[in-house]
């Protein structure tokens, strides 16, 4: 009968791995999944505070929040993409692109500039998602490509120089100029986004659909869900949040350039998402915990400097702490295979 075995094996069926995962110890793991990122941050913060009490009294938390704000937004966007099982290597390049567009439009069109900027970058994110979902290009390769394209686009529109937001800068001033509970408004914007995304994932059909896509895309597809559009949505959200981060860059610095502030957010963003308990395999994300992930990632270099680690050894410390923090907090996905 083998002469014409026409029944195709569904090409995408992973030969095993499913259902073999036996998450024993569910309860304690679940508890740790919920409080782990917070606990790790608290422990690190306490360590820094004990070694250098001045850090606490000198407004260390406020400084931390300023630094964490942009990381948090990028990490939230990254987490949404990770949530559907993909990765977005281009989102830091989107931050810069957004900042440059905003800097150039803020003068001419004033309050409409942030809106236009967000619309543009959301569209860029959506195009990324569209190419992943409908072009069926693996996201890692695709966004590596768009990263290059966006870098070039930033250089071209900024004419390879620093672009200043000359007029209407006061529109964005409150983001870092106003404090709420001691922390700048920009940070609370990020927290608000995190809570919003948390509610989105938990309380809406689209959010649950994205979770389903991340956990088992084939299963979601066979349930008649719009899996492709959920992916587009995730990438669009990543673009949108990167755009908000770009606005923060302008609010903070008043200027942007292709390799300046915000251009190196990719790796901290991914690290913050994962320290915040996001599973790199998809489907397991708690946006609220990413707040603590971002705070942790922002704390490490500040803390290392504050505690007095010699400048030369600081990136060594950074690498080790990030590995340890992730090992402690990451969401260990639905399968026992770790890649």
């Amino acid at each position: 009968m083998s002469k014409k075995a026409l029944l195709e094996q569904p090409a995408t069926v992973p030969a095993a791995a499913d259902g073999k995962a036996r998450p024993a110890r569910r309860a304690p793991q679940n508890l740790w999944f919920t409080v782990g990122p917070f606990a790790v941050f608290l422990a690190l913060f306490a360590l820094v505070a004990v070694l250098r009490p001045a850090f606490l009294t000198g407004g260390g938390m406020a400084i931390l929040a300023v630094q964490a704000a942009t990381i948090l937004l990028v990490a939230l966007g990254q987490a949404m993409v990770l949530h559907v099982g993909s990765i977005d290597l281009s989102n830091a390049a989107i931050v810069i692109f957004a900042a440059i567009v905003l800097a150039q439009t803020l003068g001419p069109i004033g309050p409409a500039a942030p809106v236009v900027t967000l619309a543009v970058v959301t569209l860029i994110g959506a195009v990324n998602g569209f190419l992943v979902a409908f072009g069926q290009i693996p996201s890692f390769a695709l966004t590596l490509g768009t990263l290059g394209i966006l870098q070039a686009a930033s250089l071209v529109i900024s004419n390879a120089t620093t672009v200043y937001a000359t007029a209407n800068g006061q529109l964005l001033a409150p983001l870092f100029g106003t404090a709420f509970a001691g922390l700048p408004l920009a940070f609370w914007v990020g927290v608000l986004m995190a809570v919003g995304l948390w509610a989105f994932l938990r309380f809406t059909r689209a959010g649950e659909g994205m979770t389903a896509v991340g956990l088992n895309e084939t299963g979601a597809l066979f349930s008649g869900l719009r899996t492709r559009w959920f992916k587009v949505m995730a990438f669009a959200l990543s673009g949108l949040l990167a755009g908000v981060a770009g606005i923060l860059v302008i609010a903070q610095a008043g200027a942007a350039s292709s390799f300046g502030l915000g251009s190196d957010l990719l790796l901290p963003g991914i690290a913050a998402a994962i320290v915040g308990g996001t599973a790199i395999t998809g489907g397991i994300t708690n946006p609220v915990n990413i707040v603590f992930g971002a705070l942790t990632v922002a704390l490490v270099p500040i803390g290392a400097a504050a505690v007095g680690v010699t400048p030369q050894a600081q990136s060594l410390v950074y690498g080790l702490v990030i590995i340890a923090a992730v090992a402690l907090t990451m969401g260990r996905g639905h399968t026992e295979v770790v890649k």
Partner: peptide
């Protein structure tokens, strides 16, 4: 105190702020 920015604006600003935060 020496601040090593490690080539990153983000790191630079945060480390300077960390020193400022100590109230000196």
């Amino acid at each position: 105190e020496i601040v090593d920015s490690e080539g990153s604006s983000q790191t630079e600003i945060s480390k300077i702020q960390a020193i400022l935060a100590q109230g000196k």
